[in-house]
Amino acid sequence: MFLESYFSQIIATLILLIVLIGIRQIVIVLVKKIGRKSGINEARIHLIQRYSTVTIFLIGLLFFSIILGAEPQDLALVFSSVFAVIGIALFAIWSILSNITSGVIMFFSFPYKVGDKICIHDKDFPLEAVIEDIRAFQLHLRLDNGNLVTYPNNLMLQKAVTLVQKDAIDDGHDAI
């Protein structure tokens, strides 16, 4: 009786799960290929893969609620309420989200890699250092004197940056 009543929803849900799992696998493979082709370290590749999985999961929840019979007006009310609350919360933590977004952008289009020596042209805090690690929120930069500086990802995209020496860590030579 239960299966007869909800047969179409069960089938639609199974199809949705298969499609979402397939899309997730394709996205994971594409991100891994792009990351490896660009020479990006595994930690950043896994981070972008997690972001993609969460996005696919949220889209899946939307389609699942439609399959279960939620009305568009109800979904609009729920989403507008949720986005209003999230908008207020995000305004409070905008810099964190800015750094995460910058980290995703840097994954796909950042011309520098771990080990490169760069110069950041900032009038208040000029900086020349070797990129030690690229994280979700910031870069770890090692100064010539050995100090570690964490530099926010969003500032990295806002400032002019010059490559001083490629693979400075591996070379062991002074900057040119």
Rank of each mutant, 00 (worst) to 15 (best):
N153Y: 02
L77D: 07
L58I: 15
V82A: 11
D74P: 00
H121Q: 13
L157W: 08
G39K: 01
N145P: 08
R135L: 07
S95P: 02
F108S: 09
Q49N: 07
L155Q: 14
A92D: 01
T162W: 01
E71D: 11
F64K: 05
P126K: 10
H173A: 07
Q49F: 01
L97P: 05
H140C: 04
I105S: 09
I34F: 01
I26C: 07
S102C: 03
I86R: 02
V54W: 06
E132K: 14
I45P: 02
H173V: 09
A76F: 03
I15V: 14
T162K: 11
I18Q: 04
L139Y: 11
D124E: 12
H140L: 12
F83H: 07
D170S: 15
I21L: 15
I59V: 13
K159V: 10
I56H: 05
I56E: 03
T53D: 06
L75D: 00
I56Y: 06
Q165P: 04
Y151M: 06
H173T: 15
T101K: 12
F83W: 09
E132C: 00
G146N: 04
T101W: 11
I21M: 13
S109R: 14
W94T: 07
I21S: 12
A160C: 01
T55A: 14
R135Y: 00
L17R: 11
S81Q: 06
V104A: 05
F91T: 09
D116Y: 03
T162E: 15
R50C: 06
L30W: 09
V164L: 03
D122P: 12
D122I: 10
T53V: 11
G146C: 03
K117H: 00
L163G: 06
Q165F: 00
D122H: 14
F110N: 15
V27F: 08
I21Y: 08
D74V: 15
D171W: 03
F137T: 10
K33F: 03
I169S: 14
N99V: 02
I120W: 01
N99R: 05
N145T: 08
P126M: 05
N99T: 04
F125I: 13
A12Y: 01
R135T: 05
F83V: 10
N147Y: 08
N154S: 14
P72N: 06
L139Q: 07
G22M: 02
L61M: 14
F110E: 12
V31E: 02
D124G: 04
Q138D: 15
R50P: 00
F79D: 06
G172W: 05
I10M: 11
I21F: 13
A76P: 00
V161M: 03
A175I: 08
L97C: 13
G87E: 03
